[in-house]
């Protein structure tokens, strides 16, 4: 294409990108693995000792992380949030996308509305959700004596339900997790709707015409025509949903603040990413690295399983 004397030019253009990637991407990959294998790394650096002389190579950090009660809690929280939010948001997004695809008037307006949560700051809007679930002057003895129950509880009462302490003092783990699931699903919908609607709009109309001629019922068209033809996009939003779910962090900061839990039990809702950052801040780089690599391992396994299932189930 272009003579070889220009080779040096290509490298010149690539130089800034390559230098930065070497320092901030490639080196960290190896170094993080190394640190994760250095036992007592953080403590040694603090004492000003040369780690090269005193460290022990081993799996100590991994053992320690896995025995850590906090880490197990983070793992559990992350897994619960993932398993709950990915199916809910995917099914809701699919229904909304199919409904949007079947209408003409208002389609563009509704599409814009459904995309709106994507362009928000997840910490800022988390504070709005916190305010909606918050009880003003919560009365622990009798919740009904609280000053104001908050709009969510008002709505629940309107439909005949009982108000609950969602995020206040003494709120239960289940209530906290429910709030997080609601917020994460709300946040996850726009991306999924966008991708699924894009997929729907590229499906050939002939399939639907054929189904119409055959008089196939609507739900059957959905499960037998739409979903199979949409399976590559569905697979994509599910995989990215799981990866995003395992990296959940800032949505919890948005609702509970950086204590990552209700006032009476800080850290109750901490996640794997939160654990990594806490460990960095506490100068326990060894633990942080081991936890980050465990997180990477989990994401890798989930992706591989997904890819395997997709190969078996995704049509065309």
């Amino acid at each position: 294409m272009v003579e070889s004397k220009h080779q040096w030019k290509a490298w010149l253009y690539l130089l800034p990108a390559i230098v930065l990637l070497l320092v901030f991407t490639v080196y960290p990959i190896f170094n993080t693995v190394r640190i994760s294998l250095l036992e007592e790394y953080g403590a040694m650096a603090e004492m000003g000792l040369d780690e090269g002389e005193y460290f022990n190579f081993g799996l100590g950090n991994y053992e320690k992380v896995l025995q850590y009660k906090d880490f197990i809690l983070c793992l559990k929280n992350t897994a619960i949030l993932c398993v709950a939010t990915v199916p809910i948001s995917t099914i809701l997004a699919l229904l909304i996308a199919v409904a949007l695809n079947s209408i003409k008037p208002l389609q563009k307006t509704l599409q814009t509305i459904f995309f709106l949560p994507y362009v928000t700051n997840s910490i800022a809007i988390g504070m709005v959700f916190a305010a909606m679930f918050n009880i003003v002057d919560y009365n622990a003895e009798n919740i009904l004596n609280s000053q104001s129950l908050g709009i969510i509880n008002n709505v629940i009462q309107f439909f005949g339900g009982n108000p609950i302490s969602w995020i206040n003092q003494g709120s239960s783990y289940m209530a906290n997790i429910t709030v997080m699931i609601v917020y994460i699903v709300w946040n996850a919908l726009p991306f999924k709707i966008l991708i699924l609607l894009g997929g729907l709009q590229s499906i050939n109309k002939q399939y639907y015409d054929a189904a119409k001629v055959d008089g196939t019922p609507k739900w059957r068209v959905l499960t037998r025509v739409t979903v199979p033809l949409l399976s590559p996009m569905l697979a994509y939003v599910i995989i990215t949903g799981f990866i995003g779910g395992f990296k959940e962090y800032s949505s919890i900061v948005g609702i509970f603040g950086d204590k990552m839990g209700p006032a009476h039990d800080p850290g109750l809702l901490n996640t794997m990413v939160g654990f990594v950052y806490d460990s960095i801040e506490k100068d326990r780089q060894g633990l942080a690295s081991a936890a980050a690599l465990i997180l990477f391992g989990i994401i890798l396994v989930v992706t591989l399983i997904n890819n395997y299932v997709i190969k078996k189930r995704v049509h065309y």
């Binding site: 990637l21 320092v23 901030f24 991407t25 490639v26 080196y27 960290p28 990959i29 170094n31 993080t32 640190i35 990866i243 990296k247 990413v273 990594v276 950052y277 960095i280 780089q285 942080a288 690295s289 980050a292 690599l293 997180l295 990477f296 994401i299 992706t303």
Partner: peptide, 20 residues
């Protein structure tokens, strides 16, 4: 090789970058 780095979660880089 560049594309392959996209698969890695950012947390993996953060620890070393913090030290750097």
């Amino acid at each position: 090789a560049l594309l392959a780095t996209m698969m890695l979660p950012g947390e993996l880089f953060t620890i070393t970058n913090y030290i750097t």
